[in-house]
Amino acid sequence: AGIDLPALSRAGVEIFFTQVFRDGFFHADMHPGNIFIATDPEHHGRYIALDFGIVGTLTDTDKNYLAQNFLAFFQRDYKRVATAHIEAGWAPPDTRADEFEAAVRAVCEPIFDRPLHEISFGRVLLRLFQTSRRFNVEIQPQLVMLQKTLLNIEGLGRQLDPNLDLWKTAKPFLERWMNEQVGRRAFRRGVEQEAPNWARMLPQLPRLVHQALARPVAPEVAPQLAKLVRTQRQQNRLLAIIVVLLTALLLSQYFGPQLG
């Protein structure tokens, strides 16, 4: 008694998408028998998941697949769905993007005949999988498991709250994931991760180049070697600039608060 069912419904969906996009590890048997609701005063109304006998794991590639396709689908950008499959290597490189786009549009566009809050993520994913298989896309088992789990989550959520809007609940998770992968924070994180490797490699480059130049060079490869040396020098200058900028950034972050 006194349980806020709409809030409980949203909590279940948010927990699931947190598991998927933050943890890459999700409960894959979310039927009603595995969900309890706390009734004690301190945790009243809290969502409790039981029985983690079946779980799924997702790689960053899997999460990228889900985020890109869900965002493109709800923006009705079927061309992006098709090109994402091809560019990421999910579909064979000789796949015709226009044919893939038309096939996705044919099966997905009718879904938008109903209000957005009534659209099933699980059924969207199922239709996308069915269409993708026609273009020789191999759907990974963990994604199939996730799709089935998503249907359970949706069904239970809408039993608790018939007006549950999964898109509104899921969109922040999808956008946050994409921003972390391709936004400025992703670039900065990548630079910070690679900086130690660049710092270790830079001092060795002159010696390696000198050793390469000291070896006898066949006449037919001399032009290619000269071009390689020029390219390497350009890369060395670029790496040096990046390391200096990164060092300045890290120093400003470390000493800035102390000076302030």
Rank of each mutant, 00 (worst) to 15 (best):
Asn69Ser: 13
Asn69Ile: 03
Phe70Ala: 04
Phe70Thr: 01
Leu71Ala: 05
Gln75Ala: 12
Gln75Gly: 08
Arg76Glu: 04
Asp77Glu: 01
Tyr78Arg: 15
Lys79Gln: 11
Arg80Ile: 02
Ala82Gly: 10
Thr83Pro: 09
Thr83Gln: 15
Thr83Tyr: 09
Thr83Trp: 05
His85Cys: 09
His85Asn: 08
His85Val: 03
Glu87Met: 01
Glu87Asn: 02
Glu87Gly: 00
Gly89Thr: 02
Gly89Val: 05
Gly89Leu: 02
Trp90Tyr: 13
Ala91His: 02
Pro92Asn: 01
Thr95Cys: 00
Thr95Trp: 00
Ala97Cys: 02
Asp98Cys: 02
Asp98Arg: 11
Asp98Pro: 09
Phe100Thr: 04
Glu101Phe: 02
Ala102Pro: 11
Ala102Gly: 05
Ala103Phe: 04
Val104Ala: 10
Val104Leu: 15
Arg105Leu: 04
Arg105Trp: 06
Ala106Met: 11
Ala106Leu: 12
Val107Met: 07
Val107Arg: 14
Glu109Ser: 07
Glu109Leu: 09
Ile111Gln: 08
Ile111Ser: 10
Ile111Glu: 10
Phe112Ile: 06
Phe112Glu: 12
Phe112Ala: 03
Pro115Thr: 07
Pro115Ile: 06
Leu116Ser: 09
His117Trp: 09
His117Ser: 08
His117Pro: 04
Glu118Arg: 11
Glu118Pro: 02
Ile119Thr: 07
Ile119Ala: 12
Ile119Lys: 12
Ser120Phe: 01
Ser120Tyr: 01
Phe121Cys: 02
Phe121Met: 09
Phe121Glu: 06
Phe121Arg: 06
Gly122Asp: 01
Arg123Pro: 04
Arg123Ile: 15
Leu125Phe: 14
Leu125Asn: 10
Leu126Cys: 10
Arg127Tyr: 07
Arg127Leu: 13
Arg127Thr: 08
Arg127Ile: 04
Leu128Ser: 04
Phe129Pro: 13
Gln130Arg: 14
Gln130Ile: 14
Thr131Asp: 05
Thr131Tyr: 06
Ser132Leu: 12
Arg133Val: 15
Arg133Trp: 14
Arg134Val: 14
Arg134Asn: 14
Arg134Asp: 14
Arg134Pro: 14
Phe135Trp: 07
Phe135Gly: 02
Asn136Trp: 08
Glu138Asp: 09
Glu138Ala: 15
Glu138Tyr: 07
Ile139Tyr: 08
Ile139Glu: 05
Ile139Thr: 06
Gln140Lys: 14
Gln140Ser: 08
Pro141Lys: 11
Gln142Ala: 05
Leu143Asn: 11
Leu143Lys: 07
Val144Trp: 12
Val144Thr: 13
Val144Asn: 15
Val144Glu: 15
Met145Gly: 11
Met145Tyr: 03
Met145Glu: 10
Met145His: 02
Leu146Ser: 00
Leu146Gln: 01
Gln147Lys: 14
Gln147Pro: 10
Lys148Tyr: 06
Lys148Cys: 05
Lys148Thr: 14
Thr149Ala: 01
Leu150Met: 15
Leu150Ile: 08
